[in-house]
Nucleic acid binder design. Structure first.
Length: 693
DNA sequence: TTCCTTCAGAGGTAT
DNA sequence: ACCTCTGAAGGAAGC
């Protein structure tokens, strides 16, 4: 068997499969480009090597919206009878009268026999129910008082405004600036086959484009003067745009698993679930399918997100509350509730997406927890005394762990249970604000070679004293839209980050505030200076030596860490390559674009920086190579124009679930080095280049 | 075609 | 943490 040669393993002599290497096709080579348009700024490297050139953007787009490394290459109704065909002797009957709920009632007695639209009519008086259909079982998000106000005055008061909005609001209409951004994305059109049935590539592409758009729009919106009451929803803007362009996949509703979506995948917006075909309603919690008009609807997926009083204590069981109803109205056996009931009768698989609080952002993470089956259903009285449907879903066996892993990690954090295989609880010895565990669950190796933990890059030359003339003067922190801020100017008029330390533009040089700026350490433009944000562990992989992963979920674009180590003179880089320094970071190596490209190759313009983490380094030295990485690096210059303020920051390419190994592309080997010894790469990706240095 | 529903998400305010 | 506000897809009803 071939072995994957990772950073922590040495290549075996003769281990390279020559036939495989020979078959490698020429690769498109897109490299970091720092826009060389008007408004140049440049500086020379200390070694006098080719300068890298940066520019403020010109034209209508902020930097990064145009072709850019590494993302933009170019730019039968049996369900209601009560008979359960799945039931065999000894199994739980479909309508459990022995449910522990004291006032349980057979669910079929609530079958809606009302004429068409009866349900709608009954809801109608509370159109105010937007987000506040406070069902008897649902956790209220709005008070009963405000509901009452809505009921009395809301309709009349809003009637006019509602009409105006409907009349003048064009779907998908946006301001010109955002329109320009959207059209500047050179998006690959999806044919109808790809729209209807997806695969891994399609799913990844859709999610990537969604998030890039969303971040871009957020950056622009953030920079505008905020008018009170105006709510910015970059997620909806990006999502509707993709919907209208048909950049979506698995649009054909289906039962069971969804091609290209794996159990454990995470999402940060409901729209993402919709775009990849996992759960199509933009807000509702139950999705269902009607094979034809004669058929009853059957549930295909549910989102358990905290809106109702679900019971989520057991990782393999979900007690899900039905939809509809409110403080004064019973839930009805229609729509989603009926669909779940039919799912029970038929024994259908139901996808379950669990919403989990994201402590990093106070938002929500959606975890795809795989397939469940509805095992029981009943009706109980909610707090207000109205009927609420309950559905007991049981997770199918044999699926990868997902939500249970989240629960386990929480237990590790809370100290309720301890992580197995821990060698060192904190290999940084307190150098970082969060501990980094060293874990081996694979073999007996006691740890990587000795090194000194150091949290940032170390230059051999002493830094010059801070030059206050080149910093910003934002005493309260840099605010988006403040065009007087020196650092925002350097970034083309925008703050390079949006919420949660997420970069707006992937693969672009970032100007952060530096030592000479007057803004405080918690300035939003100092993301890479705030230390580690997620709980890492260094772990022994099966075949790649040591690797790095996180206990926390990581958003696409979020800052992960920098590459710490000793900055290497250009003149010595070659020697280190020859020495096969496993911990050499070489920014002159280009990486292929993350998105497929049909553009001409861009000229190579390397970033003049190399770092060795052989002797000193941080968690980044443990990240292994992959040709389909989930992490990319981008250069960060802490405003001062001194070479000692150059850093390399790693950001997530896409959302990364907990306990997923973090990998980045070590870069492509220049043609003149093709003959040199390489490490065989078996990252398993369809895009695998076969080897790396 | 229009109406209606719906386990969002942001942002402000009070604590 | 609570409250308020605008939202968009798609089902269901209406024409």
């Amino acid at each position: 068997m071939e072995q994957f040669q990772g950073r922590d393993s040495t290549p075996r002599a003769g281990s390279i499969d020559k036939s495989r290497v020979l078959e490698i096709k020429p690769l498109r080579c897109l490299v970091p480009i720092f826009p060389s348009q008007p408004n140049f700024t440049s500086f020379n490297t200390p070694q006098g090597a080719a300068p890298f050139v940066c520019s403020s953007p010109s034209g209508p787009f902020p930097p990064g919206a145009t072709s850019f490394f590494p993302f933009f290459g170019a730019p039968g109704s049996q369900g209601t009878s009560g008979h359960n065909p799945q039931t065999t002797p000894g199994q739980t009957p479909p309508f459990p009268f022995n449910t522990p709920v004291s006032d349980a009632v057979p669910i079929t007695s609530f079958r809606a026999s009302s004429p068409p639209r009866a349900g709608a009519t009954s809801y109608h008086h509370s159109r105010a129910a937007n987000g506040d259909t406070t069902s008897s079982g649902r956790v209220t998000r709005r008070s009963a008082k405000s509901q009452l106000q809505d009921g009395v005055a809301g309709e009349a008061g809003n009637g006019n405004a509602e009409g105006e909005r409907t009349r003048f609001r064009k779907k998908g209409s946006m301001d010109p600036e955002v329109d320009d951004i959207l059209t500047s994305f050179n998006i690959i059109e999806f044919n109808s086959a790809r729209q209807n049935d997806g695969d891994k590539d399609s799913v990844e592409y859709v999610l990537l484009i969604f998030d890039l758009l969303r971040r871009k729009i957020a950056q622009i919106e953030d920079s505008k003067v905020s008018s009170p009451g105006v709510i910015k929803r970059p997620d909806l803007r990006a999502g509707t745009f993709l919907m209208t362009k048909n950049i979506r996949t698995n649009a054909t509703k289906r039962m069971g698993s969804v091609p290209g979506v794996e159990v454990g995948d995470i999402f940060f917006f409901r729209f993402e679930l919709c775009l990849v075909g996992l759960h199509s309603p933009s807000m509702a919690g139950i999705d269902y399918l009607r094979v034809n008009l004669q058929e009853e609807p059957v549930a295909v997926s549910v989102v358990s997100s905290g809106g109702y009083e679900d019971d989520v204590e057991d990782g393999n069981v979900l007690i899900y509350s039905g939809q509809g109803g409110n403080l004064n109205i019973d839930q009805k056996l229609e729509r989603g509730n009926l669909a779940l009931k039919n799912g029970l009768d038929r024994g259908n698989e139901v996808r379950v997406i669990r919403g989990v609080k994201d402590l990093a952002s106070l938002g929500k993470v959606y975890v795809y927890d795989g397939l469940y089956k509805v095992e029981e259903s009943w009706v109980e009285k909610g707090r207000s005394g109205c009927n609420v449907f309950k559905f007991k879903l049981i997770r199918l066996r044999g699926q990868p762990e997902a939500f249970t892993t989240w629960k386990l990690i929480q237990q590790w954090k809370d100290g309720i249970s301890s992580r197995i295989g821990v060698i060192l609880p904190d290999l940084t010895s307190g150098a970082e604000s969060l501990p980094v565990s060293l874990v081996n669950e694979v073999d007996n190796e006691k740890g990587p070679e000795y090194f000194t933990y150091f949290s940032t890059i170390k230059y051999s030359k002493e830094a010059n004293s801070a030059d206050s003339s080149s910093g910003c003067a934002c005493a309260g922190g840099c605010l988006p839209g403040n065009l007087n801020c020196y650092c925002i100017q350097k970034n083309g008029g925008y703050l390079p980050y949006v919420a949660n330390g997420v970069v707006a533009n992937a693969g672009q040089l970032i100007y952060e505030c530096g030592p000479s700026c007057l803004c405080p350490p918690n300035c939003k433009n100092r993301v890479s200076q705030g230390g580690l944000k997620v709980r890492f562990e260094v772990f022994k992989t099966k075949d790649k030596g040591w690797g790095l992963r996180s206990w926390d979920p990581i958003r696409g674009g979020a800052y992960i860490c920098e590459y710490a180590g000793e900055a290497i003179d250009n003149s010595k880089v070659e020697a280190l390559h020859s020495d096969m320094d496993d911990y050499l970071f070489d920014a002159t190596r280009s990486c292929p674009p993350i998105l497929p490209s049909d553009s001409n190759e861009a000229p190579k313009l390397p970033f003049p920086l190399a770092i060795s983490a052989k002797n000193i380094g941080n968690v980044a030295r443990f990240m292994n190579h992959s040709c389909s990485p989930n992490v990319i690096w981008q250069p960060v210059l802490r405003t001062n124009n001194r070479e000692s303020d150059l850093h390399v920051a790693f950001h997530a390419v896409r959302h990364i679930p907990p306990m997923t190994e973090l990998t980045y592309d070590y870069g492509m080997v220049p043609p003149e080095e093709m003959g040199r010894q390489k490490k065989l790469c078996l990252c398993g990706s369809s895009k695998c280049r076969g080897f790396f240095h």
